[in-house]
Design a protein around this nucleic acid. Structure first.
Lengths: 343, 343
DNA sequence: TTGTATGCGTTATCAG
DNA sequence: CTGATAACGCATACAA
């Protein structure tokens, strides 16, 4: 079970370890002859360089790490694909690191930074309960993607790329109002976790206010708890709950597309029609929202552009081109689907 | 930018490095007093242990790595969640490693094995162009999940957990036949890549044969190329192509649920109805197939059970309980949705 | 209870 | 072009 090391290879070839190292790493200062011989021996043996040892020695690696929470969220899929492409084009190595729910993303970042000698970090999604002081310990460039640093709390200096959740939520709820809806339910999380639930709720409230519609607690439907919260199932169950209640609402603002789809299904099963009986809107602009029947009216986040923008910022920082922190806010796009109608 | 090491901490505390090490790792043989003092200093400094150095020293780590190709495939989501839960229950650390499309998964496994001193590996999905000789170089226990080793080629000894794609495809196409369909199109990949395309095509052919239905090339529709192949978009475009053709088919066997959904949407947009004009079936049993309207008739792979079974095998091997290789084949479940009807 | 010294597998810096 | 040898940061056997 003892694994073969560079020393073993050196011995087998009758050369020094540094020569073997040169062969492995395509370094100059080695004759084609010996190189070939060494590579051949390596091929025949079970030798695989130990990355831990490598990382320990190397002062810097051309690698970017992307840290995601909730990797099973399809919203992230196109973003991750974009990262992969972009980073590879720059001839960097791309590491995707999943963050366990209960773990602190900044701690993981700190560990990874030392371990791999990273060039840069992207935080994708996440709740961002991050403390600024801890964030400051990160010594390589990093950027937040799809979330922005909380305002006020002295988080200035934290570059980010995001969409203004409150504003976009306002936009889509306002759209519902413009269609004549006056009784609009919201399916969301009522936990004040500074996460998407909070901002989207704020947008909802503001839109109602602007349209002179009173806000009622009874129109707020709390989604499932836990990691199923933003799933189709969650929307489905919540809609069933709503349908059983005395709700007189004519429209539903679901906190994301998956929830909207679950709601549509529940409404369908109850013998009602979308948008005939209920207009339903989502948020995010997942692919599936275009293929669903009815297609879902939603706010599309320009994910590819956001991904590119995040990496551009990151590489600028890496290259020391600009040290000013940027906080790019992308506009969301209201996509009018078949799930809404005017009344 | 020089980062602080264990030595620095030792110096700052006026103790030896081993004492600091003991404090960090909760090892015995240290007074509560000094431990507390050390931890406090660490807290205040920017010290983060370097994992590369740790891995280099440690002989074994309690960690399981899961290697996935195409992490953006929602089919894998519940499996990964299950892995995470299971592995954490065993008090092991869970590492999810994404494999770039162009990379060889076995090479990655080999590297990772040395680097992290893994206890075990799970290969999730993937094409498995793996060569047996290379696979043999892996010296820790591993198991394939959702794919089985290719038959014949002396791959005996490679434990796996999977569903019999050919048999299950047969089952669902046979079901279509039993509904009276005689002209059944298949949306798949015609590349002979030993991947899902091939086996599902075989099942399709066998089902036709059993039902005395002739096989026509013209009923085979090739999906998009590249990594969009198995997406909704791919099914959508392929269905449009089919609708424009002279096809007289009354049913479509889509190679997976996403493709089926794309096809349903295209049919809908063309003014036709599922299942009125076309019956559509998928494969996999994604959550969305239950929430789609119409819900999709599909073969559900028992993903949670498969995930658990794979890890059970792995842990048995790790504990040396059973060295016999197991190849568990789970039955798929025919789920009859609203997307099919008898004619 | 604590500190010192050694080695993990590499790469990099030197002489040769 | 090549080969010793010194780090890299940590854990551990051993000595104190």
């Amino acid at each position: 079970m003892k694994s073969v090391t560079i020393k073993d290879i050196a011995k087998m070839c009758g050369v020094g370890v540094s020569t073997v190292s040169r062969a492995i790493n395509d370094k100059p200062g080695i004759s084609a002859e010996t190189k070939e011989k060494i590579l051949k021996v390596i091929e025949e043996s079970n030798y695989v360089p130990n990355n831990s040892a490598r990382n320990l020695k190397r002062s810097e690696n051309e690698i970017i790490a992307v840290l995601v929470q909730g990797i099973n969220n399809s919203f992230f899929n196109p973003i991750i694909s974009e990262f992969e492409k972009f980073i590879q084009e720059k001839n960097y190595t791309f590491i995707l690191q999943q963050i366990d729910e209960y773990k602190d993303e900044v701690s993981v970042a700190l560990e990874l930074e030392k371990e791999k000698k990273l060039k840069g970090i992207v935080f994708l999604g996440g709740m961002f309960h991050k403390s600024k002081t801890k964030l400051d310990k990160i010594s390589v460039p990093f950027v937040l993607c799809t979330v922005s640093a909380p305002e006020g709390k002295n988080f200035r200096g934290v570059p980010s790329v995001s969409v203004d959740d409150e504003k976009e939520s306002f936009k889509i709820v306002d759209y519902l109002c413009s269609l004549g809806h006056k009784n609009i339910a919201i399916f969301s999380s009522t936990e004040v976790d500074e996460g998407i639930g909070y901002h989207r709720m704020q947008g909802y409230k503001k839109a109602l206010k602007k349209n002179n519609i009173a806000y009622f607690n009874t129109n707020v439907y709390n989604l499932l708890d836990g990691n199923e919260r933003y799933s189709e199932k969650s929307g489905y169950i919540t809609a069933k709950k709503m349908l059983k209640s005395e709700s007189k609402c004519t429209a539903i603002f679901a906190v994301n597309d998956s929830v909207a789809i679950g709601a549509c299904r529940a409404i369908y099963e109850a013998g009602f029609n979308v948008p005939g009986d209920y207009s339903v809107v989502g948020y995010d602009g997942l692919d599936i929202s275009r293929y669903y029947i009815p297609s879902i009216t939603t706010i599309r986040q320009p994910v590819e552009e956001m991904a590119k923008a995040a990496l551009k910022i990151l590489f600028k920082m890496i290259n020391g081109e600009e040290s000013i922190n940027q906080n790019i806010i992308f506009p969301g796009q209201l996509i009018i689907g078949e799930s809404t109608r005017s009344i």
